[in-house]
Design a protein around this nucleic acid. Sequence first.
RNA 1: GUGAACGUAGCUCAAGUGGUUAGAGCACCAGGCUGUGGACCUGGGGGUUGGGGGUUCGAGUCCCCUCGUUCACCCCA
Length: 420
Amino acid sequence: MEITAPRGVRDILPGETEKWRFVEGVAYNLAKRYNYREIIIPIFEHTELFSRGIGEATDIVSKEMYTFEDRGGRSLTLRPEATASIVRAYLEHHFEQKPQPQKFYFFGPMFRYERPQAGRYRQFWQIDFEALGSPDPLLDVEVIALAWDLMFSLGIKNLEIQINSIGCPKCKEGYKIALKEYLADKLNLLCEDCQRRYETNVLRILDCKRESCRSIVEGAPKITDYLCADCKNHFEEVKEGLDLLSLPYILNPYLVRGLDYYTRTTFEIISYKLGAQNALCGGGRYDLLAFEIGGSMVPGVGFAAGLERIVMVLEEEGLLQDTEKGIDIFIVSIGEEAKKQAFKLLHILRREGISADMDYTNKNLKAQMKIANQKKAAKVLIIGEDELSVGMVKIRDMDSGKQEEVSLSDVLSYLRRWKK
RNA sequence: GUGAACGUAGCUCAAGUGGUUAGAGCACCAGGCUGUGGACCUGGGGGUUGGGGGUUCGAGUCCCCUCGUUCACCCCA
């Protein structure tokens, strides 16, 4: 059997996990500051939740889900994103009975069957913020401000907030018709993909990357000109709110996101330091999602941020240093009896809150010292037959190389003093 | 799912147009120093050249298949 992880998934090894915990910690603190409370959702859900919520025709549902049948014949799916689950949890546990909005924070892995590439994996980690129960445009602004604050708190530069409004289903339909009319006589100028999109999902033509399509799109009608009065007003208030907080943003009338549930506000924060997969986070408003999955009408707005991509940018910009920390004490022993005493002392130190370790491979003194050095131990305790016979322990400072003797009974108080 | 590039030691990489027993640095282990880390010196262990098939007297090198990695498309975090 070949010993490898499946395609598109990877281990996060010691040395990397510290970086992940750092990012997660920043997000967790922000959640507290903005009053988003942590929720932990299941890894899998009924397949129907996603097919109805995200949309049957989306790429995620039509070709990217890890779906399986359990022993009871139920169709289950590894979550490809968190929003639908959080809305489901909100409805299931009757959060509409509580003061609105209810705000949630989540951190965990997602699963999508895609071809891996830079910044894209089959199991990837997301930080998720969702605010449910209010249509207030200032809540959209809060969510965008939170996303921006997350990047700012991590120290990430060279970013851009892009926002757009794709309106409600009514304005969207009107716009689609107008867009199709505009494109009708230019179909043969579009790329193959876009000719297909003309039938399947005309909005996606807007963010095609081909130069030829882009130039055609430039002359196309803009969705923001087709918003109904309510949606237009909502969008204006979002922009005002962003200005109020002096958040820099760029209007991108071609920002169309690939999940069906979005209404009105959509936004992304992109980095210039990444490759093709440059969205560090993305989100928007989804006022119809709760209804679509069979609940009452619960407006919501939120975003997801990709851990892998954030860590990539942090590495790129050199914002992640000094993750390797040493231990306080390494105990070196010589001889069977000394090893037992060392082991006992090790346990006592650890119970004292001192990080400590010893050798378990019966290395000689020199080799043990070498290990202590590699583990970046601040001090080494040396216990040999000689020391044991007089009840002493040698304590070596690994920076200065200075060494002193302390009686076994005083070691603890010596180290307590040193730790302070 | 489509396209391209690439797979040699734990890691980073060598091995003119096919030609002895596939090398080096780092890492690891041991010794120099039999009770003292980092530096240095010496030695050692490690490889089915991703896997399978083919061409050839002979394949790490050429051909086919397959798996994997990377990047891009599609799409997304």
